[in-house]
Nucleic acid binder design. Structure first.
Length: 481
RNA sequence: GGCCCCAUCGUCUAGUGGUUAGGACGUCGGCCUCUCACGCCGAAAACAGGGGUUCAAGUCCCCUUGGGGUCACCA
């Protein structure tokens, strides 16, 4: 049987980090098994669903590179892939269950139920009210009147299944009630919509967060009532914030698109997320292909995990460095433009400058920052660095630099050749590297931290290096003694 | 509160009855070094507690504790 899995977000906001991990595992499983990955939009909450959220989800999935075989925009045999476009199907399933006496129309009003709940809580002092509808066995209702459809649930025994990650799980049926399938407005409720869709879309493995563990028994009851073989279930432990609480906006970036804007690579984010809750021996770093090859359910743990941005940054910086300088050039260009630097993504200086900078960057934003002074006509200067290193006594040093770079031609315009010359002079002056490098660094970059000074001079080229050094001398001379 | 799930360094985790309890991030020290990074070397750091079972328990069972989830005409 070919693997068919789905990711079924509800368009009520951004796609967050926990959802991405669920989507990722499903996607990996589909790709690993040459199965189908279905994207289904669960938009039956008319109050909260928005079209904007649908676009955010689609954009997020596309950015992550989690392509879907069936779903919005690509279509498929089992569509439509928006629940609100499948209403007649839910009606059909519901009516079949009603006709078979497995479900019934309930005309009790919300008020009646609320009153009964209050009475129960007042009387027992407990939560956990279960509504017992008087309409369960009545046949005198008028279907033209407002009503909901409920499933006749047996309160005897228990309902369990063998979860792919949790193993045997079961819930006593006494915890259940005749839950609602179709609400008064005709829209299906989560468990029913989910059941109808998974069944009619031929989903073989339901992958979702463990907050859905509790929803599995009702869904299993629906499969049983409809006489349909249920799929398998894999519930994933939660992703919590660093403080062990439910992940929320308070905990750094939680929306996928924020990571895109922060300059992360999809592969870095995905690698980190994959390892959060799944492991493959001691391996930590994976390419997308390796993830597909190595992902398996045995490696998925049962315990909730905490989101750790430090580790994410580490994994991300690794993935950034794995990209070629040419690819990085292309990806970083928009970020350079955002800083007001008009640089072409094919500018030949870009890969050269990227080489030393990428070891110092985690994201494209960092990369753009590290590249800034190479492409800015006049580099922005760190005042503290200027004050500290461009002083009167820096003048001779800077003049020597000018001398070296001016006379450097072809073969001698290399880090090694320049260094040899500088060292010769330095020793004669009884100076150390630490006296001779910082002034040049600040003059060339405006900063006190940067890659090697010689490398920078090479990328900058003779002309621009000389210009900046001359300006540095002016500043040094203007400084107080 | 009822029900369900979970529990190895601060964090992510390896471990499937016999290990000096391993790796990674982070932290701390050192090396490299023109700064910052990268890289390399090293250190501190964990089996929540209590009972069993067993020759032997991080590994199996029970209880306690702690954490999480969920109790809708939300998903």
């Amino acid at each position: 049987m070919t693997v068919r899995v789905r990711f079924a977000p509800s368009p009520t906001g951004m796609l967050h980090i926990g959802g991405v991990r669920t989507a990722l595992y499903a996607w990996l499983w589909a790709r690993k098994n040459q199965g189908q990955f279905i994207l289904r939009i669960e938009d039956t909450d008319a109050e909260r669903s928005t079209e904007e959220s649908v676009n955010v989800i689609l954009d997020s999935m596309r950015w992550l590179g989690l392509d879907w075989d069936e779903g919005p925009e690509v279509g498929g045999d089992r569509g439509p892939y928006f629940q609100t476009k499948r209403l007649s199907l839910y009606q059909e399933y519901a009516e079949k269950l009603i006709n078979e006496g497995k479900a019934y129309r309930c005309y009790a009003t919300r008020e009646e139920i609320a009153t009964a709940r209050e009475a129960y809580e007042k009387e027992t002092g407990k939560r956990g009210f279960r509504f017992r509808s008087p309409w369960r066995d009545r046949t005198d209702g008028d279907p033209s009147q407002p009503h909901v459809v409920r499933l006749k649930v047996s309160l005897e025994g228990e309902t369990g299944w063998k979860d792919v990650v949790y193993g045997d799980v079961s819930y006593p049926n006494s915890e259940q009630q005749d839950f609602v399938l179709i609400r008064q407005n005709g829209l299906p409720l989560y468990n029913f919509g989910c059941f109808v869709d998974d069944a009619s879309m031929g989903v073989t493995l339901v992958i979702r967060g463990d907050d859905h563990l509790i929803n599995t028994p009702p869904q299993l009851m629906l499969y049983a009532a409809a006489g349909i073989e249920p799929p398998k279930f894999a519930h994933l432990p939660m992703v919590l914030g660093p403080d062990g609480k439910k992940l929320s906006k308070r905990h750094a970036a939680v929306s996928v698109l924020e990571y895109r804007d922060l300059g992360y690579t999809p592969d870095g984010l995905l690698n980190y997320l994959a390892r959060l809750g799944w492991s493959h021996g001691d391996e930590e770093l994976f390419t997308r292909e390796q993830l597909i090859e190595k992902f398996d359910w045995d490696g998925v743990g049962k315990a909730a995990s905490k989101y750790d941005t430090k580790k994410l940054e580490h994994v991300q910086s690794h993935h950034l460095r794995e990209l070629s300088n040419e690819t990085l050039a292309q990806k970083v260009t928009p970020h350079l433009r955002a800083r007001g630097l008009e640089v072409s993504s094919t500018d030949p200086r870009l890969p050269l400058a990227i080489e030393p900078v990428k070891l110092r960057a985690t994201t494209f934003i960092d990369l753009a920052d590290g590249l800034d002074y190479f492409f800015r006509e006049v580099p922005e200067q760190d005042e503290k660095a200027v004050r500290k290193f461009l002083k009167q006594d820096s003048v001779p040093v800077l003049e020597k630099w000018i001398d070296i770079i001016e006379s450097a031609e072809g073969e001698s315009f290399t880090p090694d050749a320049m260094k040899a010359e500088l060292v010769r002079w330095m020793e004669a002056q009884e100076l150390k590297m630490k006296h001779v490098m910082p002034p040049a660094r600040v003059a060339l970059t405006g900063r006190s931290k940067s890659p090697g000074v010689f490398d920078i001079a090479i990328v900058l080229g003779k002309q621009r290096s000389l210009e900046r050094l001359r300006k540095g001398i002016e500043q040094a001379k203007a400084a107080e003694a």
